[in-house]
């Protein structure tokens, strides 16, 4: 299990990396390497050129300001997990990161790498969708933003041109008092989830649901926002019956199938996890009398 030959480039400026990416045929970008390195070892990925981003300064910033969170693509998962600012402003992200792989992989793995690898069950992709993230993309010719909903093109395929790379993501923060929950069912601790669910709820002054986000991971190529369930919840007073009814929307989703889990099981798991995520998220809201 040794990688095939490749030429190795480790630029120390972003512009240089982007120029290489524009110029070189069959090039891959190396971020944290926690997904790409096994693919190289198995010769599933056989790039002629590897462009290592690890020496480029400034790609790993974490900024929480003005209702918005920006995370550089090369920010290590472990740093994000340990960031007190993110824990306070975006607890969904922190909770999900505790379930991403293991300490050793989070020490190297980056948020940009996870987004671009785009595993259907990847926690961070689901979180990005739940938070309506915007992906910042750069190439030698300029930059552009991609809404997370448009980011997955197909199974494990982001909508990036060959000369483009992700440089960061922006997340609009939810107001203080919101409740969030990320929950998943995985076979073992640290495994990719079979299905994951992310819920965010914001109560209004009357204790009704003023804002809601519900997202599933692991059921389709990209994260699945549950618009119908969100609509059912919006403006309503929460109750176990309401959450159960909203969760039952999952019974009709078009879930994928693999050797580990058939579609019917994923649908069932989705229903259970959405209900549990809603209950937990609501319990975590603040400023509402119980």
């Amino acid at each position: 299990m040794k990688p095939a030959r490749f030429a190795y480039h480790d630029p120390d400026h972003l512009a240089e990396a982007l120029a290489l990416l524009a110029r070189l045929e069959n090039a891959r970008v190396l971020a944290g390497g926690q997904s790409l390195m096994p693919m190289l070892a198995m010769r599933v990925a056989m790039p002629d050129h590897l462009i290592d981003l690890n020496r480029i300064p400034g790609l790993d910033g974490i900024v929480v300001a003005e209702g918005s969170l920006r995370i550089g693509a090369m920010a290590r998962q472990r740093r994000i997990e340990d960031s007190p600012a993110i824990r306070a402003a975006c607890p969904l992200m922190t909770e999900a990161l505790g379930l991403v792989g293991h300490i050793q992989t989070r020490n190297r793995g980056t948020i940009g790498g996870s987004l671009c690898h785009l595993d259907p069950s990847a926690e961070l992709v689901t979180v990005a969708a739940a938070l309506d993230a915007t992906i910042e993309v750069a190439s030698a010719t300029g930059t552009r933003d991609i809404g997370i909903a448009d980011f997955p093109l197909g199974l494990m395929t982001p909508s990036l041109a060959a000369e483009e790379m992700v440089v960061g993501l922006r997340i609009p923060l939810w107001p203080a008092g919101h409740g969030a929950c990320f929950t998943e069912f995985a076979r073992r601790h640290g495994d990719y989830a079979i299905v994951s669910a992310a819920a965010l709820l914001l109560p209004d002054a009357q204790g009704r649901i003023a804002r809601v986000s519900l997202t599933l991971g692991g059921v389709s190529a990209g994260p699945l926002r549950l618009a119908a369930a969100e609509a059912m919840l919006l403006g309503e007073a929460p109750s176990p019956a309401l959450f159960r009814a909203a969760a039952s929307c999952c019974a009709g989703i078009d879930a994928m199938e693999d050797p580990q889990a058939p579609a019917w099981y994923r649908r069932r798991l989705a229903t259970v996890l959405v209900r549990r995520a809603l209950e937990q998220a609501w319990a975590r809201t603040e400023g509402v009398a119980a």
């Binding site: 390497g33 390195m37 290592d52 300490i103 020490n107």
Partner: peptide, 12 residues
């Protein structure tokens, strides 16, 4: 930091 040495190139 604990890292998997099979997931890091020596040059890194």
């Amino acid at each position: 930091r604990a890292v998997r040495a099979c997931l890091m190139l020596a040059v890194q």
